[in-house]
Nucleic acid binder design. Structure first.
Ligand code: MN
Ligand code: MN
Ligand code: ZN
Ligand code: ZN
Lengths: 144, 144
DNA sequence: CTCATAGTTAGACCGAGTCAAGTGTGGGGG
DNA sequence: CCCCCACACTTGACTCGGTCTAACTATGAG
């Protein structure tokens, strides 16, 4: 727990129960919606690391604060609400199953952004290449 | 106009004024929101190719019909409503300006989907690699 | 002409996220 | 050690983009 506190302080954020609970939830399960984070945080309400429920606005505030300081990252795949994960600093990509929606990490062969070279189109200066592989996950591909 | 009719018929869709107006609007300006398509269609109301206004539901029906038969494609960039364009069949990608939101086409060097090789992660079978380059357009980059 | 099918409309509804304004509290200064 | 206030959090209304439903209307094959 107090390593989370340290992490937050390092980035200039106060260490609050809610922020720790959100970080903890994201560490357990990546690519979750805001609602799923909320449930996880609510569940933390029982047990030792007790935490009072977090309001919707509070949750979005926490997620945005964590994103701003680089601890959290989100993706917004077409047709899905935003999915949140801990920012690993590895600039990885995602593979999303068209039939069950499962999201998988895809390590980036380059590692640093922008990992694909910008096509030199009309002076555009890219800082990131976001790649989503659409298809079928192993399970859905076989059960077809 | 009647080339649009031919196009629709080819794909097994009836040629209606609204469908032609939507195709025409998208031919004029790519990467537009549903609302922008609606305005364009409404504007077509005056002039020779007169068309009665299209309801919201009607618009989404038309867009979905056109998408289903492969005439229209849409992207849903993070933080933006869906953007529609004519499906050129070239599997191109997009560069989006973080500051003004301008969207540019980026020709795909491969051309056919999936243009990037599938990450061999856990049996995932990709059929498309969607790439978005985030950064600054020429104008916004210089005016920084 | 006739009626099945395709297209269209109006309006309620929904999920995800934001805004604004007030209340509570972590943690450094006294 | 305690006080204070900037920062954290709550509440409730609201927006936006899109979907659902249940009519209603136009089209065209037979
Ligand atoms: Mn990930
Ligand atoms: Mn395009
Ligand atoms: Zn799947
Ligand atoms: Zn720009």
């Amino acid at each position: 727990m107090s390593d989370l506190t340290a992490l937050l302080r390092e980035r200039g954020l106060r260490s609050t129960p809610h922020r720790r609970a959100v970080l903890y939830a994201l560490a357990e399960r990546p690519h979750v919606t805001a609602n799923e984070v909320a449930s996880a945080v609510a569940r933390t309400a029982s047990g030792p690391g007790a935490v009072t429920e977090l309001s919707r606005q509070g949750l979005y505030n926490v997620l945005e604060d964590l994103r701003r300081v680089g601890l959290v990252r989100s993706i917004e795949p077409a047709g899905s609400p935003a999915l949140f994960e801990l920012q690993a600093g590895d600039n990885h990509h995602h593979a999303i199953c068209r039939s069950c929606g499962a999201v998988q990490d895809v390590p980036c062969s380059i590692g640093a952004a922008p990992c694909l070279d910008a096509p030199s189109v009309g002076g555009f200066v890219p800082d990131e290449a976001e790649i989503v592989f659409w298809g079928r996950c192993a399970a859905c591909a076989t059960s077809l």
